[in-house]
Simulated scan of single mutants.
Amino acid sequence: MDNSEHDNLSGIEEKLGYRFKTRTLLQEALTHRTYVNEAGGGRDNQRLEFFGDSVLDFLLSEILLTRFPGCREGELTRMRAALVDEVSLGRISAALGIGSGLRLGRGEDKGGGREKRSLLADAFEAVLAAVYLDGGIESARSVVNGCFLPLLDSHETLSGRDFKTDLQERARIVRHELPSYRLKEISGPDHDRRFTVEVYLGDQRMGEGTGRSKKEAEQAAARAALAMMKGEG
């Protein structure tokens, strides 16, 4: 490990508020498959991402259940979906400095992989899994609380917004047309399917979103479109 990588890992640990006992777990969490392909061996972060996804869902569900005792299942589901969509996880990951610590293949690195929301979101889940495996559930809970409790104070997450309905209303008022959604791709193994959906107003592509169901992906795409439309009308 060179000094630059050591500094990147130390910076991520500082922002996480967690110091790894087994640092190779953190390195694995930051290793993209393109790096392993070029190196000709080793382990990428996909297994940790799979586990981290479940850890994150569990801990966020616990937070939401406790914090919003009056909310029904549908409201809690929408809030959780808003917290774990690609936009939110990408922002959190970037704030933790995970992008600078990613181990990428040369092509992915040159192609801007350190700023790609999808890579950052996946890496955050892998890092959370690494924290759990290294320090247990309480360490993982501390990281999730530190990253997500501030988001719960934002009005759009707290309200469990239905972004599709919001986009439909805004598009009708500002553009005088309704959004349409197109399934772009389905990726991942059977146990961890990811749906990517694009949203259009007329012929203009307004954004895309990824989720573990088509509905979740559509909500994420609508959220991206609303961000693009901010300031219109």
Rank of each mutant, 00 (worst) to 15 (best):
A123D: 02
R91N: 13
L76Q: 05
I92C: 03
F58W: 08
G202W: 09
E108H: 10
S100C: 10
L26Y: 08
N37T: 13
G111N: 10
K184A: 15
A222F: 06
L30C: 07
L9K: 11
S4F: 09
D44V: 05
K15D: 07
G42L: 08
A29M: 00
L48A: 04
R43A: 11
R172Y: 10
S100F: 14
V55H: 00
V36F: 08
V55K: 00
Q168V: 05
A225I: 02
I186P: 01
R117I: 03
S142N: 14
L30Y: 09
R67A: 06
F58T: 06
S187L: 13
G105F: 12
G101F: 07
G70H: 03
G211R: 00
D166R: 07
R67G: 01
N8W: 08
T24Y: 10
L30A: 09
T165E: 14
E232Y: 12
T34V: 12
L25T: 12
S180A: 12
R161H: 07
S54V: 06
A224C: 03
A123R: 01
Y132E: 05
Y35V: 03
F58N: 04
L9S: 08
V143K: 03
K15C: 06
Q27N: 09
V55D: 00
C71D: 14
K110C: 07
G111D: 09
T165R: 15
L226K: 01
G188I: 04
R170C: 03
E75Y: 02
S159A: 14
R175S: 12
S100M: 11
L25I: 04
F124A: 03
P179T: 03
A121D: 01
M1W: 13
F148I: 01
T77V: 13
E73G: 06
G111Y: 07
A217M: 05
L152F: 04
H32G: 02
K110I: 07
V127P: 01
S139F: 04
R43L: 12
P189M: 08
H6C: 12
G40D: 08
G111C: 08
K214F: 04
L65Y: 13
L151E: 01
P150I: 02
D190T: 15
T66M: 06
V84D: 00
G107H: 08
E185D: 13
D162A: 03
S61C: 01
E185Q: 13
V197K: 04
C71W: 09
